[in-house]
Design a binder for these strands. Structure first.
Lengths: 94, 94
DNA sequence: GCCAATTGCAAATCGTTAATTTACACGCTA
DNA sequence: TAGCGTGTAAATTAACGATTTGCAATTGGC
């Protein structure tokens, strides 16, 4: 069903992957996005798009899915917080 | 890295979950969305949002992640088709 | 053949979000 | 003090998703 706890925003996790000395501006430069764009992600003001997931994958040598899936978890959790109409489970034919 | 083949659009998969006799209109009704909205998804004209993933989960008794992840795979594949600037892999400190 | 149901789709509208550039204020430090 | 790095706001532009309305094509029953 649902994850009981608020999953970490991908931006928080991404922060841990940025080397000590590197500035946000430098990281943004290497990723080919504006400083504002990366800053917003790191501070949870923006999500990670498929395009960004691919950039992170190339930059950090990870899979794009890791980042995209993290974003998905976040979005589902957010969506769960909102009310939704009652949906009757479909009776599947046996 | 990348999935070699164009992943199935979530809508195609969703089609298989709708019972034989049930109409798109009926399914949309049970999901609490408009007929147009569901039709677009089934025909690959729209993606599956986190909210829709939750509706499908409730309706089909599956996890929301199944649908959301399917959507993610689709989006990543789509994004891969577009050109992206060269991104030099970050040399991680050992 | 005729009619109603179903469906795909287009168009218009509305709301949300990502990304950019520009700009400003704050904090740190050489 | 001057400069750098940063967070963030504002204004723009571009995508999407969702809705309603309406229309055309198909299909099945009578």
């Amino acid at each position: 069903m649902s994850r009981m706890h608020n999953p970490a925003h991908p931006g928080e996790v991404l922060r841990e992957w940025i080397p000590e000395g590197m500035t946000v501006s430098q990281a943004a430069g290497q990723l080919g996005v504006s400083r504002v764009t990366l800053s917003k992600i790191l501070n949870g003001k923006s999500g990670i798009t498929a395009d960004m997931a691919l950039r992170l994958a190339a930059w950090l040598n990870t899979s794009a899915e890791v980042w995209a899936d993290m974003q998905t978890q976040w979005e589902i959790w957010q969506a769960e917080q909102n009310p939704r109409p009652v949906i009757r489970p479909l009776k599947l034919a046996a």
